[in-house]
Amino acid sequence: MYATERHERIARAIARDGRVSVAELSREFGVTAETIRRDLDQLEQQGRLRRVHGGAVGAGSTTLAETSLLERLPQRSDEKDRIAKAAVRFVPGSFRGSLLLDAGSTTSRLADLLATWQPAASDATIDVSTNSLHIASTLHGSPHLRLRILGGAVRGITGAAVGPATVRQLSELRPDIAFIGTNGVSVEFGLSTPDEAEAAAKAAMVRAARRVIVLADSTKLQSEALVRFADLADIDTLITDTSPQADLAAALAAADVEVVLA
Score class of each variant (00 low, 15 high):
Thr182Ser: 01
Gly47Arg: 05
Gln75Leu: 15
Ala153His: 10
Pro143Phe: 01
Thr116Arg: 00
Ala201Ile: 05
Pro164Asn: 03
Ser171Leu: 11
Asp123Phe: 15
Ala197Glu: 06
Ser171Met: 12
Arg148Ser: 02
Val57Ser: 00
Thr35Gly: 04
Ser21Lys: 07
Ala84Ser: 05
Ala59Arg: 06
Gly55Trp: 10
Ala254Thr: 15
Ala56Met: 07
Gly47Trp: 04
Arg51Met: 06
Ser105Thr: 04
Ser108Phe: 08
Gln42Cys: 09
Ser192Gln: 11
His140Lys: 14
Val185Leu: 02
Trp117Phe: 01
Asp17Tyr: 15
Asp231Glu: 06
Arg27Gln: 13
Asp102Cys: 10
Glu66Cys: 03
Ile157Asp: 02
Leu173Met: 13
Thr182Gly: 03
Asp247Glu: 10
Leu69Pro: 15
Arg168Ile: 09
Val57Glu: 00
Asp176Ala: 05
Ser105Val: 06
Ala56Trp: 08
Thr32Cys: 07
Ala124Arg: 14
Ala230Glu: 05
Gln169His: 03
Leu100Gly: 06
Leu238Met: 08
Gly54Phe: 01
Thr182Lys: 04
Gln222Leu: 09
Phe189Tyr: 15
Ser129Pro: 14
Gly163Gln: 08
Gly156Cys: 05
Ala13Asn: 05
Glu79Ile: 11
Ser218Asp: 12
Ala84Gln: 14
Asp78Leu: 11
Gly163Lys: 06
Val257Phe: 00
Pro143Ile: 14
Ala204Lys: 03
Ala254Ser: 15
Ala203His: 08
Arg211Gly: 11
Glu188Asp: 13
Pro244Trp: 07
Ala230Asn: 08
Gly163Phe: 05
Asp102Thr: 13
Leu150Val: 14
Ser186Thr: 08
His53Cys: 07
Val214Gln: 07
Val260Trp: 05
